[in-house]
Design a protein around this nucleic acid. Structure first.
Length: 415
RNA sequence: CGGGGCGUAGUGUAGUGGUAGCACGAGUCUUUUGGGAAGAUUUAGCCCGAGUUCGACUCUCGGCGCCCCGACCA
């Protein structure tokens, strides 16, 4: 991608209406545009990051047998009436302009919708278990959107739902999803802690959250420093400095961002919809369910909160919008630099390396460096008259200070 | 939903009861080019509505919007 053609542009100053680090850096870097409080557009750079995260999630969901599908954002009243959740205030109610349509809510979760669908296809224990997921925009009427991408009213979410013939089978799968979640967050560069929590509008059981430590996190968790056992403060009877109930280690209270959660749903939804199967002895039983969410925008916001410095974002490799940021510092009277940069750009582009090429002719070196720091691509390559004298290019990692020269002839070794 | 703050070009900011400047950005031209360059030139704005007034961006009231704290919550 040539930066001269990139839609979206860096801002030199912080937007005055944002104070959170993730919102400031993401807006300044040209990743997102705020349309309304808690409602963001993803510009091409931000969309690439979101795509990276979606890719990691897909890979891990598919690996545990999840099947991707796509459900409507318009959810008719009858679905939520079945579980009494129509009146939950998080919904945005929508009506057709012509006033003749049924009542709808913009989907804020899809347990009911998928349970209704599953009813048609599940009849025997042989149809179980199965898991289906989607990556889709969710709408929640937050009383107070805040902290940039960390709490929006509209956000991309991966929601997986699993269906089982027994509590035992469900529990096995729950543990498998748990491991998949750890892998997902790890690949996103985030260290997550598995935390016991409450179920809110979804279930009366305890649920589990994946929390990433951050000062700006709105959750407080009680975390064992030794075995990493953690409880959300909202349900915990532990206090700062207590002994861990699992290993006796020291408990510490920490702020954290909830990037994912997994819910045992039991038979709440299957009984509401009469979703039953016939077991191997011919007996009808309720399906046992679970649901599992990850907020993709929140993962982006969290990554920025965790990985940044005064100059900008420092993307973890796997979710960076590009892998290489190539900068050419050419002078008008020295076409050699420009030519060489074009050549190197083509080499990487041909090999499918994700490369952003700062080919802007009217920007100074300082401005290009500042933009590169802000955008936060992991590896910066500079080619200039100075490097060319040595038949070299300069490499610098975004998370390191040191620069290193390598010969142009060795450029492919970077791949 | 309670409390606080704030709404002026794309961004960040001045400002007066007589309708607005500055910087950056963006466009054009020239000179520049290793950490946010220089000159010339162009571009673009008072959140909305009502009221007071000869006249409102300014004062009053009412909306709406944005941020923060709290409550709530992925």
């Amino acid at each position: 991608m040539r930066q001269s053609k990139l839609f979206g542009q860096t801002l030199r100053e912080n937007p005055k209406d944002e104070t959170s680090v993730n919102a400031r850096l993401l807006e300044r870097g040209g990743f997102v545009y705020k349309n309304s409080a808690g409602v963001y557009s993803y510009l091409p750079l931000g969309w690439r990051v979101l795509g990276k995260i979606a890719g990691i999630i897909r890979k891990e969901m598919n690996a545990i047998g999840g099947q991707e599908m796509f459900m409507p954002a318009l959810v008719e009243k009858k679905y939520l009436d079945a579980t009494g959740r129509w009146d939950v205030p998080v919904g945005f109610e929508v009506k057709g302009k012509n006033e003749k349509t049924a009542d709808f809510v913009l989907g804020w979760t899809h347990e009911e919708v998928l349970t209704a669908i599953a009813k048609r296809y599940i009849s025997s224990y042989k149809d179980l278990p199965f898991g289906a997921y989607q990556i889709q925009t969710k709408f929640r009427n937050e009383p107070r959107a805040k902290s940039g991408l960390l709490r929006g009213r509209e956000f991309m979410m991966k929601d997986l739902y699993s269906f089982h013939s027994s509590e035992e089978d469900f529990k096995n799968y729950y543990a498998i999803v748990k491991e998949a979640y750890f892998k997902i967050f790890e690949q996103c560069g985030l260290k997550s802690f598995y935390t016991v929590a409450a179920g809110g509008n979804f279930t009366s059981s305890n649920t589990h959250e994946f929390q990433v430590l951050s000062q700006v996190g709105e959750d407080k968790i009680l975390l064992c420093l030794k075995c990493e056992y953690a409880e959300n403060k909202e349900i915990s009877k532990l206090g700062d400095g207590d002994k861990c109930p699992k290993c006796g280690g020291k408990i510490k209270i920490e702020n954290a961002i909830e990037v994912g959660n997994i819910f045992p749903l039991g038979e709440k939804y299957s009984s509401a919809f009469n979703l039953q199967f016939i077991d191997s002895r011919g007996k009808k039983e309720n399906v046992v369910m679970g649901s599992y969410g990850i907020g993709l925008g929140r993962v982006i916001g969290t990554a920025v909160e965790v990985y940044h410095d005064d100059q900008g974002i420092i993307w973890p490799k796997n979710i960076a919008p590009f892998q290489i940021h190539l900068i050419e510092l050419s002078a008008k009277d020295n076409l050699a630099v420009k030519k060489q940069a074009e050549k190197i750009y083509e080499i990487f582009a041909d090999k499918g390396v994700e490369i952003l090429y700062d080919d802007r002719a009217d920007k100074t070196a300082g401005e290009k460096f500042a933009d590169a720091d802000l955008i936060g691509i992991p590896l910066r390559i500079v080619i200039s008259a100075k490097t060319l004298e040595n038949n070299s290019i300069e490499l610098k990692k975004r998370n390191k200070k040191a620069v290193k020269l390598i010969k142009i002839s060795d450029v492919e070794s970077i791949i």
